[in-house]
Design a protein around this nucleic acid. Structure first.
Length: 579
DNA sequence: AAAAATGGTT
């Protein structure tokens, strides 16, 4: 009597609450065979509380004793669609372990998940199973394999699978073209693009943005005009291509002239303005949009945090909460970053400990990295380390956050150890990594180590920025090696900013070096008004070597002229005369 | 059924 009732009910579209009640009944009566339709109903549910669904889905699958291939597969597809790639791959592994014969669908989803989380070994394992199960002839599976190898950057294997495919479709071709474009191999991409038969909008779009990424405006424009049909996504591809090669104004031209904008067009533009630091224009576009979805909010909040405006980011987050706008992982990643910029541990850990559980957002590596940075900056280095060990995959950004965190928490040797560990894992450091490492080294005064570190940047194809020089000057200066510091500045291929000379000046003041101090102060004033008290530093040097008259004159001059840079002012002349 | 746009480090 109960069974037909449940069957009828499950054929209807139900709310989460109703489904939970029904699930209770199913569990009590041990009617496990209903799990399938329960899951199906859940996945096709119109409800937009995707986080709640994710959570519930996992708990049903976890509790059912005999996982069923079809429902697990649809759950995997659902999880992939909602960005829960670890969960999706986890289900695949579970399926494997239960020795059930997986389907081609499950394999395709598993490959997608592995590609997205960068799980190279996982994907290669699935590739092996593809042979074992004889799925080699399946277009979806093989396209999935091509996609996986493209994502992990292994174009050779991608090509090998592609070449051996018995049957190819548009998606297989497009995936290969996209892969070549991303790996910078334009001619291979062109070869495929012009050689393929049935191009669709995606093929045209990726080729157009591929040209733009390389800065080839003419070819991109020509292709754009040749396109048989221009969809919104094609215009958006132009915008994002211009944004990627830092041509925001041209991107804006296309934005203004496209027949119909959607929220992605606006998000892309906001990203472009964010990149070049034009927060005002970004906000203008944001405000102009009538209907604002959560993605638009995410883009604007990220723009604020990336440009060092955490307060505004949190204000906007507040607005989201008030207007009941959907909050997702991307929102929280940016908000947590805003918290660490402000040093606001209480709000940040509220998000971590309470809010995330409340709205059922599961942890991922990006969120963990943001939290690692938060706890480290707020002095909870042990907590940061705990989270660091929870990462699925430790990448450059995670290592960098942790190295810097150790550096500012008096664990310089751990920072160095982490860097070595990173090298062993063959993870390529970037400019920020070296900033963090040099910051750590500057605290322990290991000059030779610092030189080694600084010089090794070139080996990774990295050009030190003025900030890196600044750190080196600080390290050399602290060790009293002022001449060396000065020579390093003179060797700089770019114009040193005031921070570099400022670091030298500071070192001169602790080591009472008048000669170099004057040179450094002169440069500081040429580059910037005396907002950082450079004049007083120099005056202190004079005083410390007993040149009371010079010190007095300088102090008087600062006092009279204020802290503003005045070209040709008396004390500037004085400094010029002396050097 | 398939691919792709936003998030984390100075």
């Amino acid at each position: 009597m109960l069974v037909p009732k449940i069957t009828t009910l499950l054929n209807h579209s139900l709310t989460i609450k109703q489904l939970k009640q029904l699930h209770g009944l199913i569990l009590i009566h041990g009617l496990n065979h209903f799990d399938r339709s329960l899951i199906h109903n859940l996945i096709t549910s119109k409800s937009n509380h995707s986080q709640t669904i994710n959570h519930y889905l996992r708990s049903i699958l976890h509790h059912s004793k005999h996982p069923d291939v079809d429902s697990t597969t649809s759950a995997m597809r659902y999880l992939c669609k909602h960005g829960e790639f670890h969960e999706a791959f986890g289900l695949y592994v579970r399926l494997q372990r239960s020795r059930l014969l997986v389907s081609t669908f499950a394999v395709a989803s598993a490959l997608k998940a592995c590609g997205r989380i960068g799980d190279g070994n996982g994907g290669i394992m699935v590739h092996g199973q593809v042979f074992r199960y004889g799925f080699c002839g399946d277009v979806y599976v093989e396209t999935g394999l091509v996609g996986f190898y493209v994502k992990v950057g292994d174009m050779e294997s991608a090509r090998k699978v592609f070449d051996e495919m018995s049957e190819r479709n548009v998606v297989s071709w497009n995936t290969m073209i996209d892969g070549y474009l991303r790996s910078g191999d334009l001619s291979m991409a062109e070869g495929l693009f012009f050689g393929m038969g049935n191009k669709d909008v995606v093929s045209w779009n990726s080729m157009v943005s591929g040209y733009l990424r390389r800065g080839d405006m003419e070819k991109a424009l020509r292709l754009f005009e040749e396109m048989p049909e221009r969809k919104q996504s094609s215009w958006n591809a132009m915008i994002s291509g211009y944004v990627e090669c830092e041509k925001v104004d041209l991107a804006r031209k296309f934005y203004d002239s496209m027949p119909q904008r959607n929220s992605i067009s606006c998000i892309t533009m906001i990203g472009g303005y964010s990149k070049c630091g034009d927060v005002v224009s970004a906000r203008e576009l944001f405000s102009e949009m009538g209907m604002k979805d959560h993605l638009l909010y995410n883009a604007m909040i990220a723009c604020y945090t990336k440009n060092g405006r955490p307060k505004e980011a949190l204000q906007l987050f507040d607005e989201m909460l008030k207007l009941n706008v959907h909050v997702d992982k991307m929102t929280l990643a940016a908000v947590i970053s805003a918290c660490s910029q402000l040093g606001d541990l209480s709000f940040g850990s509220w998000i971590h400990e309470i809010y995330m559980k409340q709205i059922r957002i599961s942890m991922d590596d990006h969120l963990l990295t943001a939290l690692i940075d938060l706890y480290a900056k707020c002095g909870s280095i042990d907590k940061a380390f705990d989270l660091f060990h929870n990462l699925h995959k430790k990448d450059v950004v995670a290592y960098t956050a942790m190295i810097l965190g150790c550096g500012i928490n008096g664990k310089e040797h751990v920072a160095i150890k982490l860097f070595d560990e990173m090298m062993e894992s063959k993870i390529r450091p970037n400019l920020v990594t070296f900033s963090g490492l040099l910051t750590a080294l500057s605290h322990v005064g290991m000059v030779e180590e610092s030189y080694h570190c600084f010089n090794s940047m070139k080996r990774y194809g990295l050009v030190p920025t003025p900030d890196h020089y600044s750190l080196m000057v600080e390290i050399l200066g602290r060790a009293g090696r002022l001449e060396e510091a000065h020579n390093l500045i003179k060797s700089m291929p770019m114009l040193p900013h005031s921070g570099v000379w400022g670091a030298l000046l500071l070192a001169c003041s602790t080591h009472n070096n008048v000669e170099l101090g004057e040179i450094a102060a002169k440069h500081c004033f040429e580059l910037e008004a005396d907002s950082s008290g450079y004049g007083s530093l120099l005056a202190n040097i004079y005083a410390s070597v007993g040149r009371w008259e010079d010190a007095k004159r300088l102090r008087k001059s600062i006092h009279e002229k204020g802290l503003v840079k005045v070209p040709g002012s008396s004390w500037m002349d004085h400094v010029h005369d002396m050097t």
